[in-house]
Computed example of a mutant assay.
Amino acid sequence: MERKTKMRKKIVAFRPENVLKRSKEKADRYGFDFFGFTLFELVDRKEALKEIEDVFDEGVDIVVFTSLNGVKKSFGICEGKFELKAKLSDAAIEICAIGPVTGSELEKRGVRVDFMPEQYSAKGLMELMDKRGDAENKKIVFLRSAEGGRDILDFLRQKGAFVKDIQIYKVEIKDTEEEKGLFSEFVAYNPDYIIFTSSLTFKMFLGLARKFGMKENIFEVLEHAKIAAIGDLTAETICEEGMKVDLVAGKSTFEGVLKEIKSKTF
């Protein structure tokens, strides 16, 4: 008797170009079929180099990296022009990484990580800094995307910290005919699960669906599929559009959400 081959569940995620291949490999490792593409490009801010130089000249107590891209872009901007690794190696400066992927990238570059919030988000960092209770008069620098939220900055300033938010790169949406074609492929793919890795990703996805005149088709796919969100803020943003979120990842990493989907039966 011929044995039937079990169909692999289909997963979609919208990932930066530099991690798409790795995302597919991870999905494959967990037994999923993967389709994904990039909704935006990460563009360096040339002004960031001077801002980094100035802030270290003024003195820093804590440097916060919020993402893998924040680490890569910071070092890329400084390469051959400013010894960022040497500055971060100063024992008087504490390094905070949000999430193990961010921390791992820093450690690969020879930079120690002094602390990391249990919840890999701005909310998690707020809770950690509140628990530490030592933000007052600290000079805290964020090296991150121009799209980063302001809540964490306001929170730390209310605690008496001097906060500098250096926008290392900005996000430029990709809205060409090529992306429109990828949206059509997404509809035809008809996934079982859709992973939204951030609030920004979901907003851009929805904005492009409207721009391409594909909102109805996209919403049909979203209604059929199970939606997984990385982080509470992402889930809240999706729910604001009247959609149901089936899973909010406990650990806010792409692999973490794959693991949770694998372990659950919807």
Rank of each mutant, 00 (worst) to 15 (best):
D134M: 07
F65C: 03
I62Q: 00
F35N: 02
A146R: 12
G110Y: 02
M126Y: 06
K6P: 11
G99C: 10
I77W: 07
L182V: 09
R112P: 10
F186T: 09
E240V: 00
I52G: 00
D154E: 11
S184P: 01
K24N: 08
R22N: 15
E241H: 15
E17I: 11
S199M: 07
Y120R: 03
D130K: 14
I168Y: 07
E255G: 01
P16M: 04
E17L: 10
G80A: 01
L128K: 08
R112S: 11
M126K: 15
L143Y: 03
K6Y: 13
S23D: 05
F196E: 03
V60K: 00
E240W: 06
D54R: 12
E118A: 14
R3Q: 13
G80C: 02
E178C: 07
E47N: 13
C239L: 13
P16R: 02
V43H: 06
V257P: 03
G250L: 05
T253P: 01
T237P: 10
K50L: 10
D151E: 13
L233N: 12
K87H: 09
A228F: 02
V248P: 03
K10G: 06
E41Q: 12
F183Q: 04
F65M: 06
A122E: 14
D44V: 14
V111L: 04
V248D: 02
I195L: 05
T38A: 13
G80V: 01
V64D: 02
F75P: 04
D33R: 07
R109Q: 13
E107C: 10
V12P: 01
I77T: 10
D28Q: 09
K85P: 02
A91P: 13
G256Q: 00
M126W: 06
Y189T: 02
D175L: 00
L247K: 01
E25G: 04
R150P: 08
M243W: 11
E2L: 15
L49M: 05
T38L: 06
A209D: 11
S104D: 15
L153H: 12
E136H: 07
A27E: 04
L206N: 14
T66C: 10
M7Y: 10
D165S: 13
R22I: 09
F205W: 11
A229M: 03
R210Y: 07
N217V: 07
C239Y: 12
N190P: 04
R22H: 11
K251V: 06
G31A: 04
S145Y: 03
A86K: 15
I95M: 01
F202Y: 15
V187L: 08
A161Q: 00
A135K: 00
F37N: 01
Q167E: 14
E2W: 13
L128V: 03
E220V: 11
D61Y: 00
R45M: 14
E118C: 08
Q167D: 12
F65P: 04
E172A: 06
G59A: 06
E58T: 08
K123A: 15
K10I: 04
N137P: 00
T253L: 01
I238F: 12
A146E: 15
M214S: 07
R15T: 06
S121Q: 08
K10T: 01
F32I: 08
G31K: 02
V248K: 05
E185W: 05
T5I: 14
E2D: 13
